[in-house]
Design a protein around this nucleic acid. Structure first.
Lengths: 355, 355
DNA sequence: GTGAAAGCGCTAACAA
DNA sequence: TTGTTAGCGCTTTCAC
């Protein structure tokens, strides 16, 4: 039942050299005579050798630490979602002696980002995964990591100023197009204008949102050039003025459907619409927040686009762990599918293991 | 940078016993005196010991073989898709000396299933992952595996007659509901009847399709009880008669939209509709076959539901490999999300790594 | 019941 | 330039 695998020792015997020499040939390290190299290489050609990763890793007996630099989960439901990715990664990698250490910063506070980053650097982890929310401060930080040659991956937000080992996230432009197409499907028989709704908090991840808007506009532009497309931007986070400003915008532009890139924006909007008897206006929102799921099931929101933040984090850790432990290379970019969520498939997403 | 982990040796020293005794206590094997057991257990309480899986696995030096019993990929595009799951699993598990051995059978030929199963049994693998297409023959086979205590997982098709370690797939009933909801969205402003289309080949996986039909009907039943729902079944696989029968069915029942659970059925149907000037009829199909993707992008199909057969297979292998290698337990059921594919998000699915 | 020791495949240090 | 050997942490065997 248990077949034997080829070992370095076997190769050594076949080539008539020692294991040390075989090791040197395989890893191109140290000095090897031409003759010996040829013998070993010809044996390697013949047989099908794959090294035993377990034994390989067992040799170097360290514990690696991967640091996470992410927004505080207590402050924002979207980032809270991402944390299940940490839990699952923790379970998966613990047996390989990979330690995961989160450092939290506040979403609206660039200083707290810097502080968390400083603390992180002091603890000198072996690798870092981060959502580079604050562009300016982030760039400084990642340049420091570059200098220390600490590998890092980015997720959620793509920035072009530095070069992470890997970026994990979605194509924002295409995400905007998708949102537009869904809104179009919902409202194509109605008169009026589709709109993208920006809410103040959004501004910080501006690249993100600008790209979504571009995709959103492009879709309608290609579909029906005569169709006007509106962007409503609401500044300030006072609830009462939010509602008032929103309704004013809707009436002014005769809005028939709203595309809302901020995950927590859909709830505010749905409530405001209901209060004002405007339930006929369609909503396409983002992410599987508890409130969004409820609204979806109650038909107050029509579609959600799922960004799967937990899996983004999970995959980021995955790539770094493989990089550290097994020297496996990571893709420079891992784009996630743009997942369409409706009342009828949302449960299947909730039940599914991290996928 | 590299912290040390607690080893069995450390525990032994703390408890004042030998590593052998610690091992016996941890794994409850062999004889240990009450006194020794207590000492070791009290140390274990104090400290946070996690065994080194690498070393553990290295100890038992075998190669495991996982056999796959699946439809021949050359005969059916859906099953061909699933094979990328094999490739990726192969890459992932090869370093752990896990061998994957496929055995193919023909989709329309129960005898070939039995033959492949016999061959598989002769090779006595350590585990089996299979799509139990032919109910009757499959049950016999899996009962044999039970007797040999060879663990197995099922994917794609759920059968209740035997108890696999794990089932991997989707909720067919909910999948039918989802299809219905999408079709409803597409056609809600039109008169006529929505229909589910069964094509002859479908019959073999009958449970699957019956469940989808039930979900499909239930959705419309709850949505608008007065709405008639049609089922069109087309027997025989002669192309000409297919078109004729289909068009006849559509006209007779005044069909406004079609839900087509067979992955290759959407193409046949879209072509027939186009030939007959019935392009206004909506189509919701299944799976990311090349032809389906083209039709989706050309607006001949409106939605696809993605079953992700490659990942189903991949996860099946994953669970078995973890079971064999690390004694990790697998969930008895892993339900995949019901993924909605449109012209605007299909590329994001194609680019994504197996997810 | 218990401890000592060999061995899993690979790496790295040390001799030759 | 090569071969030999001592580990890595855990399992398993063997002797006491």
């Amino acid at each position: 039942m248990n077949k034997k695998m080829i070992r370095i020792k076997d190769i050594a015997k076949l080539a008539g050299v020692s294991v040390g020499t075989v090791d040197r040939v395989i890893h191109k390290r140290g000095k090897v005579s031409e003759k010996a190299r040829e013998k070993v290489e010809s044996v390697l050609q013949e047989i099908d050798y794959t090294p035993n990763l377990l034994a390989k890793t067992l040799g170097s007996n360290k514990v690696y630490t991967i640091a996470l630099l992410v927004p505080h989960p207590g402050q924002d439901p979207y980032w809270k979602l991402s944390m299940t990715g940490l839990d699952i990664a923790q379970k998966e990698w613990r047996p390989y002696h990979m330690e995961l250490q989160p450092y939290f910063f506040e979403l609206e506070n660039a200083k707290s980002f810097t502080a968390a980053a400083q603390q992180l650097l002091k603890d000198s982890p072996d690798a870092v995964v981060s959502a580079p929310i604050f562009l300016h401060e982030a760039v400084d930080f990642f340049k420091q990591l570059d200098q220390l040659s600490i590998p890092y991956v980015h997720f959620n937000t793509m920035i072009s100023e530095v070069s992470p080992l890997s970026f994990i996230g979605q194509d924002s432009y295409q995400s905007g197009r998708l949102g537009a197409s869904l809104l179009h499907l919902l409202t194509k028989d109605q008169t009026g204008s589709p709109a993208i709704l920006h809410i103040r908090e959004s501004v910080q991840h501006s690249v993100h949102f600008r790209e979504k808007e571009r995709g959103f506009r492009d879709f309608f532009g290609a579909m029906s050039p005569s169709q006007t497309v509106t962007a409503i931007t609401i500044e300030g986070n006072d609830m009462d003025t939010f509602e008032e400003k929103l309704i004013r915008g809707i009436k002014k532009h005769d809005i028939k459907g709203l595309f809302i890139p901020t995950s927590s924006g859909a709830k505010l909007t749905a409530n405001a619409l209901e209060k004002n008897g405007l339930q006929h206006i369609s909503i396409v929102g983002y992410d599987l927040l508890k409130e969004n799921i409820d609204l979806l099931k109650n038909d107050k929101i029509n579609f959600l686009i799922h960004q799967n933040p937990s899996r983004q984090l999970f995959r980021g850790i995955h790539h770094l762990a493989n990089h550290l432990l097994f020297k496996k290379s990571a893709p420079s970019k891992e784009l996630f599918p743009l997942e369409v969520i409706t009342a009828e498939n949302v449960d299947s997403y909730l039940e599914a293991v991290l996928h």
